[in-house]
Amino acid sequence: MQPAHLLQQVAFIKEIDKLKYIQRKTKLFNSERHENDAEHSWHLAMMTIVLAEHSNKPIDVLKVVKMVLIHDIVEIDAGDTFIYDTAKNHTNTEEELLAAKRIFGLLPAEQAADFIAVWKEFEDGITDEAKFARSMDRFEPLLQNTSNNGGTWKEFDVSYEKVYDKKKAIKEGSAGIWKYAENLINESVEKGILKK
């Protein structure tokens, strides 16, 4: 007979496999294939490890990695909301909280509480770790869209003002990465892949 904790953890591991089926609007670098949430989370984790030195403040890198790996798990139930969606607000919703409680609730109670707390910390965006995690979350799609000749910006007729407004949150976690990102946004306008 297996220990109850192990059975709960395996159930959670099986459940989160569904993240691989949640398609995002953005496409892989220089590709026509849409990214899925699992790929996105993995990429953010790698970005965190590689770019941590650019954080505005010293951060617990492992905690940020944990944040970016679990931040979109709620989308298994709630679905992915496109950041430039005009019908549905891209903020923490009651629907996402219910999803967090259900999915993380598959884990043993102490682990579930920890995962929910880390997920909420990311959503609140107040701690230095959350600010850097959110910077990574905003930076990756910017890199994708610039590699894809405008990508979702062109596809969904997103303006410079909207992009700038959503991406300026990068500055909260990393002024250096924001400077780089701001230059990419402005170059995108000059290249005609982002309308001003």
Rank of each mutant, 00 (worst) to 15 (best):
A169W: 10
S55M: 13
E161R: 08
G79F: 12
V158R: 00
G79M: 12
R33W: 13
K120W: 10
T91C: 10
E96V: 01
R24M: 13
S159V: 15
I16Y: 06
R134P: 11
T48L: 06
T93H: 04
Y21F: 10
F12E: 10
A52D: 15
I22L: 06
A38H: 05
E140H: 12
T91E: 11
A38I: 05
R134A: 06
P58V: 14
W153D: 00
D124F: 06
D80H: 14
S174M: 06
M67Q: 12
L184Q: 08
D37K: 07
K27Y: 07
G150D: 08
G176Q: 11
L51E: 12
V163A: 04
H40E: 11
A175F: 02
Q23L: 14
F12W: 13
L7T: 10
L69K: 07
E140S: 08
E53R: 15
M47G: 09
N186G: 12
N186K: 11
T93C: 09
T127D: 05
V10G: 03
K88R: 09
Y84C: 14
E94M: 09
A130T: 04
S55P: 13
A169C: 07
I13R: 03
W178S: 05
I59P: 02
N183T: 06
Q9G: 05
H54W: 15
A113N: 12
T127M: 06
M1V: 07
I170V: 01
V74R: 00
A100R: 03
E35H: 03
E95N: 12
L69E: 13
G192T: 09
I185W: 02
E53T: 13
S135E: 01
L28K: 15
Y21C: 14
M46S: 02
